[in-house]
Design a protein around this nucleic acid. Structure first.
Lengths: 347, 347
DNA sequence: CTGTTAGCGCGTTCAA
DNA sequence: TTGAACGCGCTAACAG
């Protein structure tokens, strides 16, 4: 066990005072350092393998160079966002601290604020909307001027900067792709839960579909379907739909499950998916499309890019390069993943 | 923007010295605090919403109360482990810092050691074996007495404590389940890559299969198969196998993919999976079994439990409750996930 | 222009 | 129960 190396040791070995060591490391303006001394310091640092004590530095500067990732740890998508955050943070010398959203008492949303008050983190990227607390929580944020960016959070909110997927654009891209490759007017399959209430994103999608069809002089065809059917009911339902649509047909579904169901029903009927029936999903929340057969072409939510953009932006707030008052929303396009369920024209 | 609240403020409001504030918070032995002073302090803390500055505390105590999770951020399994770590850490007042394993220069394995030298972390849970560096890396660990626990890492290694799945036990449990429910002698499907080299875990599995069959007076039947076949080749191969085995049959596969292939081939032949052909996987690395139809019964690698056990153990090292010299390996059983691809007897 | 000294930040801990 | 020192790095003020 080697004892800790401090700036004092480095200074002694290099024959300078500790302030010079600090100046060399941080390029402090106001403290000039001659070339030879600078090199002596660098050499001593190398030799002793000196590492600045992060706690001591943080205490002085008031920055921990850590940001919290607040989210649902059992959601696989979360990992994508983390990956993106990680990349952006590393590029700026920040670290990512995990803070799961859960109902357990040790992980309340106030605990997250405490982390900031304890100076353990410099800001937060949230990948989950704080449930209950909502407005009260947001007031806390603003009161403490806590740097905060939400992923997939609050579109158009006055007080919370967000990074979101551009749902409309993603539908347009999907339709362009389908139309360009198979040249058939796409049917829109709209899955929903229970009482037929659409989320904000699904409303956007539907609007975009209707507009796109209009622009192309095509008649919209929308097949709404509950996601709560049993396997048997579902299978029957989708077989009937396929017969109704006729063949060949192109289909775009709002949720990933829709594409799976349609594809499966087609297979049971002996209809070759990717030839007579072209299926595409507007998202891939279960991340299973590539493992299915045939694998399903889809628009992928750009989680990694969203995480990266959010972290990037958070660092701007922290380092004062972006004013705290800028709460604008940032929109990212979905990513087209070409797979087997749609025939492609060879260029 | 409220100014930071320090222990000084609390002391003043409570009419005591700062050391008393500290003693109340930490229960310092050797500093007695009368009941009324203690309450005055607590009240002042509440009132001012005082939070200890983590950096200042850490600087003094030499502990950051952070542990690093080193792993491959693009591996979905990683998230499970994180979830487990998170739970155990929270229970002991620790935080989880993410450190991805990657080839990028900002995330070398030495960077991980530096984190420790900088006192940013108190220890490491590794979910990925540091590639190249191996022996050199382990020497570094030992040299600095860095608390370190590996998940799925180095079975039986002298210098690195590990948490692993008990492969043999998982096979036994799977076979017990199959045998108990369908009463057919299970065929073992052994997938492998290229040159037919089995990993350590797969060797364990095979041994366990052979032994179990012997103990039950059954003739082992092993079908080895390359995972590198094309879809068409694979389909042909598995159809032939199913014909060869005859019906009804029970099948246990070492990898999750094997079960998917067999199941798919059966469906193409019109053989009802879960009735005439019972399929089970010994792992579920792609985590898609529950989304397939029929969903596939499998033994699930207990990633969450492994993460939890690893973190728990790391904290023991850090807090000196377990000697650094204890490098023993810890084995965890796989978890049986009953799904549709195997018929179950109703109790 | 180069470099030093002294004091600070904040909580912990030991001697009194 | 408390005052004072300490841990480690940063930086304003100051001197060569």
């Amino acid at each position: 066990m080697t004892k800790r190396v401090t700036s004092f040791d480095v200074a002694k070995l290099a024959g300078v005072s500790r302030s010079v060591v600090s100046a060399v490391l941080n390029g402090t303006p106001g403290i000039g350092v001659s070339e030879e001394k600078r090199e002596a310091v660098l050499k001593a640092i190398q030799e002793l393998n000196y590492q600045v004590d992060a706690q001591a530095r943080g205490m002085k500067t008031g920055r921990s160079h850590c940001i919290a990732a607040y989210g649902n740890v059992s959601n696989p998508m979360f990992l994508q966002v983390l990956e993106g955050m990680q990349g952006a943070c590393a590029a700026h010398g920040y670290h990512v601290l995990l803070y799961p959203s859960s109902k357990e008492p040790q992980h309340t949303i106030d605990g997250l604020l405490d982390l900031y008050l304890q100076r353990r983190i410099d800001g937060i990227v949230a990948l989950d909307r704080p449930h209950q607390a909502n407005e009260a929580w947001i007031r806390q944020l603003v009161k403490h001027r806590l740097p905060y960016v939400s992923v997939e959070g609050y579109p158009h909110h006055e007080e919370v900067p967000s990074v979101l997927m551009d749902y409309q654009e993603s539908i347009r891209r999907a339709l362009d792709f389908l139309w360009g490759n198979v040249g058939l007017p796409p049917v829109y399959v709209e899955m929903h839960h229970g009482a037929h209430t659409l989320g904000w994103g699904d409303q956007q999608r539907r609007e975009a579909y209707e507009l796109w069809m209009k622009e192309h002089g095509l008649q919209p065809r929308i097949a709404a379907a509950s996601a709560d059917l049993s396997w048997e009911e579902g299978a029957e339902h989708w077989k009937r739909c396929i017969q109704e649509w006729g063949l060949p047909t192109a289909v775009l579904t709002n949720w990933s499950r829709g594409a799976v169901y349609v594809s499966r029903a087609a297979q049971m009927m002996g209809v070759p998916v990717g030839e007579q029936l072209h299926v595409m999903a507007a998202d891939n929340t279960k991340r299973i499309h590539e493992y299915l057969y045939p694998s399903i072409t889809s628009m992928e939510v750009p989680y990694r890019e969203m995480g990266s953009a959010a972290a990037e932006r958070l660092v701007e707030y922290i380092e004062g390069r972006r004013p705290y008052e800028d709460k604008s929303t940032q929109w990212l396009p979905a990513i087209l993943a070409v797979r087997q369920s749609v025939a492609t024209v060879s260029s």
